[in-house]
Design a binder for these strands. Structure first.
Length: 117
DNA sequence: GCGGTGACGGTCG
DNA sequence: CCGACCGCCACCG
Protein backbone atom coordinates (compact mmCIF):
# COMPACT_ATOMS: atom_id res chain seq x y z
CA UNK A 1 0.00 0.00 0.00
CA UNK A 2 1.12 3.51 -0.51
CA UNK A 3 1.96 5.89 2.19
CA UNK A 4 2.86 8.56 -0.33
CA UNK A 5 0.50 11.28 0.64
CA UNK A 6 2.61 13.96 -1.00
CA UNK A 7 1.29 14.04 -4.52
CA UNK A 8 -2.44 14.03 -4.42
CA UNK A 9 -5.51 16.08 -3.78
CA UNK A 10 -4.88 15.14 -0.17
CA UNK A 11 -2.25 17.75 0.41
CA UNK A 12 -4.11 20.26 -1.74
CA UNK A 13 -7.10 20.10 0.58
CA UNK A 14 -4.80 20.43 3.55
CA UNK A 15 -3.25 23.56 2.12
CA UNK A 16 -6.69 25.05 1.64
CA UNK A 17 -7.60 24.13 5.20
CA UNK A 18 -4.53 25.82 6.63
CA UNK A 19 -4.93 28.98 4.57
CA UNK A 20 -8.53 29.23 5.73
CA UNK A 21 -7.25 29.32 9.29
CA UNK A 22 -5.30 32.50 8.71
CA UNK A 23 -7.28 35.10 10.64
CA UNK A 24 -8.54 38.32 9.13
CA UNK A 25 -5.92 41.04 9.15
CA UNK A 26 -2.99 38.60 9.37
CA UNK A 27 -0.61 37.13 6.82
CA UNK A 28 1.46 33.95 6.54
CA UNK A 29 4.34 32.92 4.30
CA UNK A 30 4.29 30.10 1.76
CA UNK A 31 6.97 28.28 3.68
CA UNK A 32 5.02 28.60 6.90
CA UNK A 33 1.95 27.05 5.29
CA UNK A 34 4.09 24.27 3.86
CA UNK A 35 5.58 23.59 7.26
CA UNK A 36 2.19 23.43 8.93
CA UNK A 37 0.81 21.12 6.26
CA UNK A 38 3.87 18.90 6.52
CA UNK A 39 4.22 15.73 4.50
CA UNK A 40 7.18 17.09 2.59
CA UNK A 41 5.17 19.85 0.99
CA UNK A 42 7.42 22.67 -0.16
CA UNK A 43 6.73 26.38 -0.39
CA UNK A 44 6.63 26.24 -4.19
CA UNK A 45 3.83 23.71 -4.07
CA UNK A 46 1.80 26.01 -1.89
CA UNK A 47 2.20 28.79 -4.41
CA UNK A 48 1.24 26.49 -7.24
CA UNK A 49 -1.87 25.27 -5.44
CA UNK A 50 -2.99 28.80 -4.66
CA UNK A 51 -2.44 29.73 -8.30
CA UNK A 52 -5.12 27.20 -9.17
CA UNK A 53 -7.77 28.98 -7.15
CA UNK A 54 -10.47 30.78 -8.98
CA UNK A 55 -12.39 33.93 -8.23
CA UNK A 56 -14.97 33.56 -5.52
CA UNK A 57 -13.01 30.94 -3.65
CA UNK A 58 -13.55 30.76 0.09
CA UNK A 59 -9.80 30.47 0.55
CA UNK A 60 -8.17 33.76 1.66
CA UNK A 61 -5.23 33.32 -0.72
CA UNK A 62 -4.34 37.00 -0.44
CA UNK A 63 -3.10 36.44 3.10
CA UNK A 64 -0.22 34.30 1.85
CA UNK A 65 2.94 36.20 0.89
CA UNK A 66 6.64 35.34 0.74
CA UNK A 67 9.05 35.23 3.66
CA UNK A 68 10.40 38.68 2.79
CA UNK A 69 7.01 40.10 3.61
CA UNK A 70 6.37 40.97 -0.01
CA UNK A 71 3.74 39.94 -2.49
CA UNK A 72 5.04 37.29 -4.87
CA UNK A 73 2.19 37.27 -7.34
CA UNK A 74 3.31 39.45 -10.27
CA UNK A 75 1.13 41.57 -12.47
CA UNK A 76 -2.35 42.90 -11.83
CA UNK A 77 -3.12 39.95 -9.58
CA UNK A 78 -0.47 41.20 -7.19
CA UNK A 79 -1.94 44.69 -7.23
CA UNK A 80 -5.32 43.20 -6.37
CA UNK A 81 -3.79 41.16 -3.58
CA UNK A 82 -2.19 44.25 -2.10
CA UNK A 83 -5.47 46.11 -2.20
CA UNK A 84 -7.30 43.23 -0.51
CA UNK A 85 -4.75 43.22 2.30
CA UNK A 86 -4.91 46.96 2.71
CA UNK A 87 -8.66 46.52 2.93
CA UNK A 88 -8.05 44.18 5.88
CA UNK A 89 -6.02 46.85 7.62
CA UNK A 90 -2.58 45.50 6.76
CA UNK A 91 0.02 48.17 6.14
CA UNK A 92 2.79 48.21 3.53
CA UNK A 93 6.00 50.19 3.81
CA UNK A 94 7.69 52.21 1.06
CA UNK A 95 9.13 49.05 -0.40
CA UNK A 96 5.78 47.26 -0.44
CA UNK A 97 6.75 45.11 2.48
CA UNK A 98 4.56 43.94 5.34
CA UNK A 99 5.90 43.93 8.89
CA UNK A 100 5.67 40.19 9.59
CA UNK A 101 6.48 40.80 13.23
CA UNK A 102 3.27 42.76 13.43
CA UNK A 103 0.89 41.17 10.93
CA UNK A 104 2.40 37.69 10.76
CA UNK A 105 0.16 34.81 11.76
CA UNK A 106 1.53 32.90 14.71
CA UNK A 107 0.09 29.63 13.48
CA UNK A 108 -2.82 27.34 14.35
CA UNK A 109 -1.51 26.81 17.85
CA UNK A 110 -1.74 29.12 20.80
CA UNK A 111 -0.07 32.47 20.23
CA UNK A 112 3.19 32.84 22.06
CA UNK A 113 4.47 36.23 23.05
CA UNK A 114 8.22 36.59 22.64
CA UNK A 115 10.24 38.20 25.35
CA UNK A 116 7.85 37.00 28.00
CA UNK A 117 10.67 36.24 30.37
C1' DG B 1 12.32 11.19 -20.93
C1' DC B 2 14.60 15.86 -20.64
C1' DG B 3 15.18 20.57 -19.76
C1' DG B 4 13.14 24.93 -18.46
C1' DT B 5 10.16 27.42 -15.27
C1' DG B 6 7.90 29.31 -11.07
C1' DA B 7 2.49 33.09 -6.28
C1' DC B 8 9.62 30.03 -2.48
C1' DG B 9 13.37 30.08 0.84
C1' DG B 10 18.02 29.77 2.94
C1' DT B 11 22.84 31.10 2.35
C1' DC B 12 26.61 33.94 0.90
C1' DG B 13 29.28 38.02 -0.43
C1' DC C 1 20.11 45.84 3.52
C1' DC C 2 20.29 43.84 -1.07
C1' DG C 3 21.33 41.09 -5.04
C1' DA C 4 23.15 36.66 -6.75
C1' DC C 5 23.09 31.57 -6.31
C1' DC C 6 21.45 27.26 -5.38
C1' DG C 7 18.20 23.64 -3.74
C1' DC C 8 13.52 22.16 -3.96
C1' DC C 9 9.65 19.86 -6.66
C1' DA C 10 5.38 19.75 -9.68
C1' DC C 11 4.05 21.17 -14.23
C1' DC C 12 4.60 22.02 -19.20
C1' DG C 13 6.42 21.79 -24.04
Amino acid sequence: MDNDIRLDATYTSRIYAVVRQIPYGKVASYGQIARIVGGGVQARQVGYVLAGLKTGSDVPWQRVINSKGQISLPGVGGAMQKQLLIDEGILFDEKDRVNMNLFGWEGPGEPVQPGLY
